[in-house]
Design a protein around this nucleic acid. Sequence first.
DNA 1: GTGTTCGCCAATGCATGCAATCGCGAAGGG
DNA 2: CCCTTCGCGATTGCATGCATTGGCGAACAC
Lengths: 237, 237
Amino acid sequence: MHAIAKGPVELNSDSIVDRVYEQLKAMAISYEFKPGERLNEGELAKRLGVSRTPLREALNRLNTEGFLRFTPGKGFFCRELDAHEIFDLYELRKSIEIASIRLAIKRARDEDIDALLAFLQATGPDPGERSSVELVELDETFHERLMGMSGNTEMLRVLRNVNARIRFVRWIDMDRINRSNTQAEHRAVVEGLKARDEERCVSVLEKHIDRRLDRITSAIKEGYAQIYMPAARAGAN
Amino acid sequence: MHAIAKGPVELNSDSIVDRVYEQLKAMAISYEFKPGERLNEGELAKRLGVSRTPLREALNRLNTEGFLRFTPGKGFFCRELDAHEIFDLYELRKSIEIASIRLAIKRARDEDIDALLAFLQATGPDPGERSSVELVELDETFHERLMGMSGNTEMLRVLRNVNARIRFVRWIDMDRINRSNTQAEHRAVVEGLKARDEERCVSVLEKHIDRRLDRITSAIKEGYAQIYMPAARAGAN
DNA sequence: GTGTTCGCCAATGCATGCAATCGCGAAGGG
DNA sequence: CCCTTCGCGATTGCATGCATTGGCGAACAC
């Protein structure tokens, strides 16, 4: 009936669980599920074209990663848009970024620093051509590469999780960000890193993150409207 | 038909998945599985008296939390005892502990600080009566309560995960720790917290954690022997 | 004798089925 | 009229079964 080996149909390298996981994560990140909404396993399984077994594995992963909430006997729920949680995540992010830049100053290789500068050069000059989704992606990539130079894999793992969980509010926030200013701050951090100037790095990075943090609360409030707007249901059937 | 409320039969409050998860986590923490060992789902399911479905859910949770590794098509494996990973986890822990003590200085209520002092008082005087497992547990509790006073739930979540993953090496390390010294440092931190003396707190805490970190590498090497000793297999059948 | 390939067994990947539980509405009592 | 209780439909919890894939050894070719 299915699974016809059509040959080059590029049987996706990933398992069904991985595919479902990515789909659900994308939905959770973009709040396609409304905050607090209960996720019906049967319905979801039908929509995604899989059985409940791999679906539940994916849901469980998202639960432990903080994208969903689970209540025994009741099921999975979209996480609430909790301003306090967002705030905590920002603080967490700030902590490990500050810590990792200190480590990076001691450990980063000059060639890697230069590569990051080149990355900034390549992605920076662009004016207002990019969508906020793309801008957030660029920003995340920068910060993750920066943290990568600390050599601490576990910090990077935490950062990636945090980034994914605050991505939604950053989409909203990014619209109002002065991109060239952001760029300048990023460059200042990397140049401070190259100069092994810890105080400069920390102070710039601290302000850089704080500036976002300061506006998060208001962004969340304003963002509520967008969350409840009809998420583009990919009606593929 | 059944479900006769036998009353004290203590129908475990948790689901099967939760129970299996806790059992497996305990095994993973104590390295009852040897590093790199492949976990046979069928065998494990039989040993634990459950089917593979809840078992796999539990295994997946442990995978995302870093206790196990998973390779598609091959299965779950016990994580390697990776010295670098332990080191990274310690650095991560140090970062968020330092950050959280700064926050706690601004936010902690005096009564909570006093409660933590009372906790130290209650658990401290004890001489060398406790096992290293108990000592680690006390130490973790202290640090988690300390971080709790930062009010940052997400940092606490990360700390808990880190603690569980480095617990094993701490069991080994704890044997050689000067308990009264540890106690004194803990008290110094809390008293600095009460005095809202940031510099004092940070410097004591930093040294407190660094002292462990410095010895971790050697502890790991010495610990290898213990890991490969026959883990008490609960041969319940 | 060494390297390669084929084939079988075991283990995983996923789907399905059934029992237990939860939620919600209707019916009955106060 | 409101609160409580019973019961049924919907949903989750878990077990089982089958298809698929990977591992490993034997046989064969070189």
